[in-house]
Structures are given as structure tokens and as C-alpha cells.
Nucleic acid binder design. Sequence first.
DNA 1: GTCTATAGGCAGATAGAC
DNA 2: GTCTATCTGCCTATAGAC
Lengths: 196, 196
Amino acid sequence: MAVTQDDPTVGTAERILDVAERLVQTRGFNGFSYADVAAELGITKAGLHYHYPGKAELGEALIARYSVRFAEALGQIDDTVRGAHARLAAYAGLYAQVLSGDRMCLCGMLAAEHQTLPQPMRSAVNGFFDENEAWLTRVLAQGKSDSTLSYDGSSRDAARTVLAALEGAMLVARAYGEPARFQSAAARTLASLAVS
Amino acid sequence: MAVTQDDPTVGTAERILDVAERLVQTRGFNGFSYADVAAELGITKAGLHYHYPGKAELGEALIARYSVRFAEALGQIDDTVRGAHARLAAYAGLYAQVLSGDRMCLCGMLAAEHQTLPQPMRSAVNGFFDENEAWLTRVLAQGKSDSTLSYDGSSRDAARTVLAALEGAMLVARAYGEPARFQSAAARTLASLAVS
DNA sequence: GTCTATAGGCAGATAGAC
DNA sequence: GTCTATCTGCCTATAGAC
């Protein structure tokens, strides 16, 4: 994701999202404050409230932008990568990119804090997972139909399993500060779907 | 885990852990306060500080007790369950039990908040994962040697993948409030290790 | 062991000037 | 759009009585 924090052509609202996004992905929604964001941008807390009335609205905006960007990345994969297995590898690569910035998936982090979130944020988090599941389901079904992938049961259940495995791999890899742990687990997960 | 909260034979220190544990597993370490625990136990915040000087010490005590109990449960499996596959299923059952109380794995939750935790808690969280990995590694190696399990690469890497997959499955299942999502993902993960 | 009382700080949020 | 100033409430933590 682009660093817009020092780009004068980017509006304050976007730069707030950039800083807040990083803070949520590294510290959690309950682990950062308006003061943290304001200090980093060199403005005051009151300035933030002009752009986002409350933390809940800021949170919703974060998930909305993250979901759009992720959907765009998935569209990019559809357009540029051929073959179900290669697409899954590219999908895992998106996660690896996030992790390389010492970040957790935004919605994976928020999933942990789910019970403490305002309702609109909860729905948005699940919506993100739903979109990922739908994309994965399509790719998996494609791979099954052209016999480049093999798995039992529904594509949807397999998609859910892949999503959960990658989120978990990020979670643990980040605790150790070892992105290689993610790479290994992701490779294994995808390998389990390869034709035998 | 036993409910000691209303048992007069159980000391206050233990009951504090019971309440705090549930709060951390459901809301996160940054999502609960001494006031929450005190109110639920009917004592004052000052009373808590007598038993645990600060939130950091309380957190360390939580992980320590959780790790001991988990290790005991693993020992129980070793003693009562035969066969690598059945042991893995029992292991996943431990997670399912936690999830059935709408809780996340204590250390999975703390892993998300890792960057905000005091150093001793960070080490303890990773220690919990290390113990789990060691146990899983043993079970997987056993299954491979007696040909009841099949997987490529090192047992340690396979163990890490299983651990991460189960933690991720809990994380996502909890966001949806659907334990069945965990069951499905866990069953798939174990099935991928079965002999073909 | 548990209480009252209180400290000092930070949280999210608002009013109103510029 | 961003500021200063301020509010209210909650946070972790401590001192000292009982």
C-alpha cells in the first residue's frame, strides 16, 4: 500500500486512514488512540474529529478502504495470473506483503477484538471475510473443474479452511517476528490442495 | 475449565484469574480493566492489586496457569488416547471446548495484541506456542513412523502449520459466532494429514 | 485481605475562535 | 480545516485505615 503520509497532494482524511490503519494492524483497535494518530500527523485530536466524528466511524472507514483495496488486488490476480494454483499462491502473497510490514491482516486483528467492536464494524469485518471466501471459492472450483486442484467436500468449506489457515499463520508468525513461519505454513496449506 | 467463581473454598487469587481469563479470551488484554474484574467479583480495584500488583503481573499469571492446564490436558491425551490421528482429533477438541464458551484461545488472543504487551507476557505467549508445537511434533512424528499419518517435510513444520490453522479457525469462527466453522476447518486440516 | 480515598494520566469527545 | 481549551469519564496505581 502506498505511503501517502508525506505526500502533500494527498488529503488529510486519507493520511489519517494511513496512520490509523497501520496502528490498528500492529496494535489493535483497542490499542491505539486519537492522540497517537494526531501526534504522528502533527495535528490535534480535534482536527481528527472533523474528518471522522468518532473512533467507530474511523474504524468503519478503515475497513471499507481495506476491503476495496483487497478486492482490487484480487481483481488484479484474476487479470494477470492464470491457473488456480498460481492464483492461490498470489493470494498468499498478498498476506505475505502485509506481514512484511510487521502488520496483521486488518480484519484478522479486528476479528480478535470482535466482541468489543461497535456493530457496524463487526458486520464490515465479516463482509471482508465473505468477499475473500467468495473469491477463494471461485478459484478453488476452477481448479477442481480443470483438475489442477484436488480436495474433498464443497469448495466453500475448502475456501473457509484456506482463509482461516492463512489468518492463523499470520497471527502466529507475527508473534515470533518470523515471516518465514507464514511462508512455510502457506506453502503447506496450498500443497495440500495440489493434485496427488 | 472449572467455574470457581462462586465456590467459597477457592481463594480470591484464583477467582480473579477465572474472571480475568474469560475477559481476556473474549475481549482481549487491552479490552478489559481491573474495574471489570472487581465489579464481577464484588470486591474493589484496590483488592485486586493486593493479589496482583499490576495488570502485567496478572497477565503473566494468566498465561502461566493456562499453559499448565493445557499441558495437563495434553498429558491426559497421551495417557488416554491411542493413535496419532485420534490424538490430533482430541487436540482439536480442546480448541473446540474453548470456542464453545465463545472464547478465543488465550494465547491466540494475546498473539494479536503481542506488540502492546509487556515483554514477560510476550515471552510467555511464545512459550505456550512452543509447548504446543513440541507436543504436536511428537504426535505427528509418531503417526508418520507407524504410517497412520502422511505429510511432506519436517514434523516440526507440519506441527506449526496445524497450530496456526487451528488458531486461525478459532479466530474466524468466533467472528461469525459459528463454532461449526471451526469444526469444519479442523476436520479438513486433520484429514490432510491422513494416509492416502 | 479488603476497604476508602485519592492521585495523575489518558481516553474519546465537544464548543467555539480563527 | 485546524486550532485552543475544556469536559467528563475511565484507566492503573498507591497510601493508609480497618
